[in-house]
Design a protein around this nucleic acid. Structure first.
Lengths: 222, 222
DNA sequence: CTGGATCCCTCACGATACTG
DNA sequence: CAGTATCGTGAGGGATCCAG
């Protein structure tokens, strides 16, 4: 006993006991976008063993972070959703995700690109001040994933799926991150063929301002 | 290989690969208050095996989160300090700590109470607006630990150790959290004997406003 | 004394198979 | 579809030992 606790009277230690175990944060991440069923969670976490997913859901439920709910009818299915306490993790998950994204390098061939992660990445890096007075809709293609973003006067609405009639359709392989981190300019991105667009080209220039990621960490200095 | 990665192209997954392993976050926490030597870290993390501490420091160094530095002279000792990328974790660690503190119940007899954790807890819960126009100094006693806080016009300076001449000396067993979460009123805390003070009593009332923690999660509702 | 390295043991995790 | 049962492996825990 006491094997999995840190033995400290400390909020951070407690937090890591609650959501620090492997996969737990990613389960929370997927539930941030709404209630999900067991198999939907599996789909969003392709490498998770089912017994681990079971165990995490049980732990999170016991910690009052997740809540099981029986769908009324006619479904009669079980869904998992975040409690209010669980939803309070949202700013943390977003900020932590933006921090981690900075040291993300190009995806391995085996890496999966999940729509939910990209939707949250947009939310995490969205810069409301850069969107003042702007009304625009984007459709993004990243590998096999399609998502969209509506910007209306400082607010963002992002979700999976396409958006017919979007002002700009952006196919960004994985230069998306480079664009958001300011590592390449929009014109460079276009000329090198790393991104392809259809629609209003000036919206590409604004994209990097709307969704801004801090630069990657450097090896040397403090 | 690839056993410890999540196989997702996702900032959060990357973040958990970097700081999600056991003890890693707590090492970062302790380094947030300044460079520390190996043995100082051990002292702040009483239950960590030394091989794990070694391994974590190596991992964090390789991830450009921590940096080894040789102290000039006359010490010639090794210290570990956060890089700029590591310091960027501070708001995350503080917020996550405040979140976790909400589900902290009374400390187990074996739990250690670390000064660093309390200092960061003060920083995490500090409410600058509540400190407008206030100039005050506190000395806090929590179990065997003594720390202090200086408040001057909206800013907080907290550190370990006593502060002779503090405006209010507060000995709060562990009713400290209840006070910060608004679970008990200052007068209740005094009358029940859960906290003892010497100094200006009205500063006790302000304490709960200066350092405010959200209420504990409830079991039932969403 | 600091800053680790080494050994062994245990348990949580991971892969797979199986069940209501 | 929604998990549980089984079992092997490797990371974590704890003690001890060693070099500068």
């Amino acid at each position: 006993m006491a094997g999995r606790t840190y033995g400290q009277y400390c909020g951070l230690a407690r937090a890591m006991e609650l959501v620090g175990e492997r996969w737990a944060m990613l389960v929370v991440r997927d539930l941030l976008l709404g209630p999900k069923r067991f198999s939907e969670l599996r789909r969003g976490l392709p490498r998770i063993p089912t017994n681990i997913l079971s165990a995490r859901l049980r732990d999170l439920e016991q910690a009052a972070i997740v809540q099981r709910r029986i769908l009324p009818r006619p479904a009669a299915a079980v869904v998992y959703e975040l409690t209010s306490y669980g939803k309070d993790l949202k700013p943390i998950v977003l900020t932590l995700g933006a921090w981690g994204a900075r040291s993300l390098d190009d995806p391995q061939p085996n890496d999966s690109v999940m729509a939910d992660a990209l939707v949250l990445a947009l939310q995490a890096t969205f810069h409301p001040e850069a969107a003042r007075g702007l009304e625009a809709t984007y459709e993004l293609h990243v590998g096999p994933v399609v998502l969209h973003a509506r910007i209306a006067d400082g607010t963002l609405d992002a979700a999976e799926g396409s958006l017919p009639g979007a002002d700009l359709v952006l196919d960004a392989g994985r230069a998306l991150k480079a664009l958001m981190a300011g590592e390449i300019s929009p014109s460079e991105a276009l000329e090198s063929g790393m991104v392809r667009i259809t629609g209003k080209p000036d919206l590409l220039a604004r994209f990097g301002d709307l969704f801004r990621l801090a630069p990657a960490p450097s090896r040397r200095p403090s």
